[in-house]
Design a protein around this nucleic acid. Sequence first.
DNA 1: GCGTGTCAAGTGAAA
DNA 2: TTTCACTTGACACGC
Length: 298
Amino acid sequence: MRLGYPCINWSIECRGNKTFRLKSYSEKRLVETVGTNLDCLQQMLRWNVDHGLYFFRISSDLVPFASHEVNTFDWVDHFQSTLQSIGSYSKQQNIRISMHPDQFTVLNSKDSDVVNRSIAELKYHAEVLDAMELADDAKIQIHVGGVYGDKEASKTRFAANYKHLPESVKRRLVIENDDRSYSVKDCLDISEQIGIPVLFDSFHHELLHNGESYSEAILLCSKSWKTEDGCLMIDYSSQAEGERKGKHAENINLDHFRELLQCLDFYNFDMILEIKDKETSAMKALPVLEEFEVEVVV
DNA sequence: GCGTGTCAAGTGAAA
DNA sequence: TTTCACTTGACACGC
């Protein structure tokens, strides 16, 4: 099992998700920003290896406006050697990489413009991982999308649009259960139709489910991952105390984390902690895994 | 320098 | 009908 956190490391000086306003777009600004972000990504990965964290989600802001029409710059070519070198380091260290396009990526939208922009965004994410020369186990995770008053039709539309995606996206795309529309069962229905792996989000599952235990849900999701996909990916979080339902915790609740681990029969998965203080919580979670004698990648 | 309104993009629930 | 939340932070304008 590998443990990680998303996008930002607060312990080091730099941020790997620097961006700027569309109004101030220029090729110079883009090159500077991407250069800074890649440099920081390298630093974060090294920090992670030094601290026993071998799973990392790269920020979608790595290349600002990557799928926007304003951006005609061939950033893949320009940053090829850097991307390749980061990818090579990741493979050498056995680091698992993922990405999570934001909420504007809606593959099952009823608006074809939204679908086309979503596909462009997915292509960008695939380009990053491809330029890093990562294997198919480096995934791009998205939610199923909107319901539009008819969930079954919207699931079918997702499956239909998926079939038209370029191969570079298909081999990396996975779907994740969300907290208000598409449960694990809904995702598995889609998976049965098109063979897409289902990423398990434990917090969303607490908020929206069909009565499956953690253990049952994880086993079911796990089966949707083929050998070349790598092991199941899990997103973990817990409720922020006294906050709106569904809000992610500021820091890890170790009792809650132990409760989840106690429910499980096997630990053959990689886990991202979606908790606000990022690497700090991940570092607190590592010793808990030891309590459960989970075999952690080192 | 600092305070703060706003940022490319979608959807649905809450206010 | 508008605002808010979503991995939210931080850019950049105006003083």
